[in-house]
Design a protein around this nucleic acid. Structure first.
Lengths: 340, 340
DNA sequence: CGTATTACCTGAACCGGTTCAGTAGTCCCA
DNA sequence: TGGGACTACTGAACCGGTTCAGGTAATACG
């Protein structure tokens, strides 16, 4: 229990520190016999190498960082993040990396300051970046800081890729959704997206617009901010601010907004799906529990986190910059688009 | 951008490493002039001290750990954890501590191994422990490992407290709930709790039983496991396995089980609250969105996390073992207990 | 005026690992 | 028999901070 050190182990075994180190790290330069003796002793003493000493001499922190930059309110209610986190942690644990988590209010300056600090202190070996923005300043910043990173939801920039990241086929997702609505006979739909500063929203908007055009469906776009209330407001606006007739179906950018939309319908005395159908771009327990239950695109956040983390690990390990596309999302059809 | 070191700064300024270190850490032994020069240069160069070097020489990791030990499925759906995390992170950030997060399946051996590893590697300065168990082996383990910890939901062990932790007044919470049901005229209620291995569940069960007895209310207890399905099963059992008449109100140990209960009622063709009222021991968006919306005890997980983290910080800082009781929970009355 | 005190500063040791250059010893083969 | 190659091992430097035990020089005191 007294804190042993490598020097201590060496003395006990009558060999040098160097040999102990080689033995522990599976490096050549020691006989099998010596290696066994070292490993056995380490186990017997329940000894582990000091992470800080190791980090110092290897100039490697043994940890990756992740800044969750969102409204504290949203963080607490958005199940997507938890799933993502779980996936990330699982992958990192397998690669023997620790996860440093930092939550900041939606404030670019704070996120930036965190990266600068982490890079300066060499506290993390790399970071996971989420929600790629239009003209995102973060890749350039991280590049300048020399901090390796993986961009979750990166643009597909051809090969070889310019930066490491995961890509999702938003066009295919859009098509899945629009096809489903088309099959349901909808001719006037609305798309309530998150902020267009997010690159993936831009792609989704385009995807929906183009696919709808091909099917001769009129689509109205409304920009909101992922919060429950903004979904409610969007729906109210779409129904009451009568442009050329209200939509018969509304696609929401996440589950919370979908819930808001549902509430708005109830307040307006309209029925879902009979009067207005609803689709959520994100599945979660909320969609299952709502009444009516909400048709949703299941994106498997756990898997996404896992893949992103694996990319980062291999980037740190081999320096290999690569992108990986997410497995296609699956549409879970529920009552909100199935007229009775 | 070239990675500066303390030696580099010292050379530039023509002074010794020691002086630079003293200046940076606000320690005596340098003139105000020198201190300013050092700080200015550090800022100009965007220099930060290497965390691993600092950790090594101070023998302090600058991080605290937290093991989230739960079903991956539950972690992803249970909003309580996210709120807790957000609170913890906020407090830690203010104290300049990093948060190391580790998620493991509900497996005591893995949690134990994580603590042993962290202690051995001196990777964290302390840990946050959640969900105090009956005969919890963790305090003794952490004591043996010499790892300071704060127990969230510790028993109130008089003064001076034996270990650092937060306490909640489960008796008062129980009373709040039972009073509300009593006022609603309920005479036969059921309490669907989480596993009794959790100390707080034990206290809740006792609290509900005793308070109900004082009011002449009959209470039936059912042990479940926090999952949606178990709530559903519990409700089904309570209604159909007719003991002396089904309850007119059911208290669920968390929000997920409450949702399950609601689903079961729907399946059984019963109406809430007219046939059976529901109260959740945990508030969340689910309770607000459900139809009917569910009366819930709001426990403010963010605040709880914050307090726990602050306790740990002060324990690490001053070594002071203390307990702090959580601000009382508040009952948010909604439709599920308000007959129309 | 001599000495004790203080303020400021420095060289060197230290934290606990990794790693490089170098030293024996062994084996092999011409 | 001698030398090249290989294996097993070691001492010491190094990573980048912190901290301790002095050492000046200036100031205070009797």
């Amino acid at each position: 229990m007294a804190k042993e050190t490598i020097a201590g182990l060496a003395k006990r075994l009558g060999i040098s520190k160097a040999s102990v180190s080689y033995a522990l790290n599976g490096q050549p330069g020691v006989s099998e016999l010596t290696r066994r003796r070292v490993l056995d002793l380490a186990e017997e003493l329940e000894w582990y190498p000091s992470s800080s000493a190791r980090a110092l001499s290897r100039s490697r922190a043994g940890a990756v960082g992740m800044v969750l930059s969102a409204d504290p309110l949203l963080i607490g209610t958005e199940p997507y993040y938890m799933g993502l986190l779980a996936g990330i942690e699982t992958a990192l644990a397998e690669g023997d990396m620790a996860l440093l988590l930092r939550m900041v209010a939606k404030d670019p300056a704070q996120e930036r300051a965190t990266y600068e600090r982490w890079a300066g202190e060499r506290k993390v070996d790399g970071v996971l970046v989420f929600d790629h923005l239009h003209d995102d300043p973060r890749p350039a910043l991280l590049e300048r800081l020399g901090l390796p990173f993986v961009l979750h939801g990166a643009p597909d920039t051809g090969s070889p890729p310019a930066l490491s990241g995961t890509t999702a086929d938003h066009g295919a997702d859009s098509a899945t959704i629009v096809h489903h609505l088309d099959a349901g006979g909808h001719r006037r739909i609305a798309h309530v997206s998150g902020p267009q500063t997010f690159l993936h929203e831009e792609e989704r908007i385009r995807g929906v617009r183009e696919c709808a055009a091909r099917h001769g469906i009129r689509v109205e776009h409304y920009e909101a901010d992922y919060a429950l209330e903004s979904g409610r407001k969007a729906m109210t606006h779409l129904i009451t601010a009568g442009s050329a007739g209200p939509p018969t179906a509304v696609v929401f950018g996440n589950d919370l907004m979908s819930m808001g939309g549902l509430l708005a319908l109830r307040d307006l005395g309209l029925r879902c799906p009979d009067d207005v159908a609803i689709i959520s771009w994100d599945d979660s327990l909320h969609c299952q529990l709502a009444s009516p239950s909400v048709t949703a695109l299941s994106r498997n956040p756990g898997m996404q986190g896992r893949v992103a983390a694996e990319l980062l690990l291999s980037l740190l390990d081999t320096g290999e910059v690569q992108t990986r596309s997410m497995p296609g999302s699956e549409l879970v059809v529920r009552s909100s688009t199935s007229p009775t």
